[in-house]
Amino acid sequence: MSATSVLHTPVPLEQARSAATNEPALMRWLLIALALIFLTLFLFIPLASVFYEALKKGGDVYLKALQEPDALSAIQLTLITAAIAVPANLVFGVAAAWAIAKFEFRGKSVLITLIDLPFAVSPVISGLIYVLLFGAQGWFGPWLQAHDIKIIFAVPGIVLATVFVTFPFVARELIPLMQAQGAEEEEAAVALGASGWQTLWRVTLPNVKWGLVYGVILCNARAMGEFGAVSVVSGHIRGMTNTMPLHVEILYNEYNFAAAFAVASILALLALVTLAAKSFVEWRFGHDQQTSIEEHAA
């Protein structure tokens, strides 16, 4: 439920403040020091410790932990899951934003709230709901068993749970962006004879490309890192239904700390790449906004 993750333009550097509206230097340094101590304790040391613990026993142990067959299959399953969940939610996000931003209809605000719903649900409950539907004692359990289809404790369940927890990411970036841009450009394209698909490909999507990329980056990070929901539906079968975060848990609970942190360090690296990409997109988006403002002014 990160209402805060919506793409916004970075603001220009702070203007110089006069002495009357600024704190004394001592107070300033005290506040900065306090904030940095808090962030160091809760953010920087934990992040650094992941890499420290991973490499503590040397590069050989590190590489061996990553080349182990179970680790490789966990990496593979994580990639497969994200490769299905992210495009599925991308298509949904574009469709939902098209309907919501370009048309006026009844019940729109209810629909927007419902799209955000998965962010308000505990990851564990996100897994539980699919167990209630497709588990052995679930609604469709007997039918699935009769037809020899496995969803829970198998890959389809993991994909479903991941799709659920990453459901709103792309839609919630695109909806406000496309609402702000209005429908004039699309209406002009249609009036000039473009088909609906041409309008979507040539006009709408290029206009929202940074919002789209932003949503996909966040969606992908969550899809690859999800733990709680996937843990409920996975069944933790080594080499079969373990994603990377679940593999980290198993290794850690076996007191194989070096290997656990080695796999964790890949996920931490992914998080850092995500943050870097996110900052880049925010910067580019701000840059484009600036140029378009200047173009309009000229």
């Binding site: 940095l36 953010l43 040391i45 934990p46 990070a221 848990e249 964790a264 998080a271 996110k278």
Partner: peptide
């Protein structure tokens, strides 16, 4: 630092869990 504030959004929770446990256990750094 501004960019790193979002780390808890991006870092998988299991990774945060084992890192914090290792740090705050009685034999950990903190």
């Amino acid at each position: 630092i501004d960019a790193l504030v979002d780390l808890p959004f991006a870092l998988p929770t299991a990774v945060a869990g084992i890192a914090l446990t290792t740090l705050y256990a009685t034999n950990g750094l903190i």
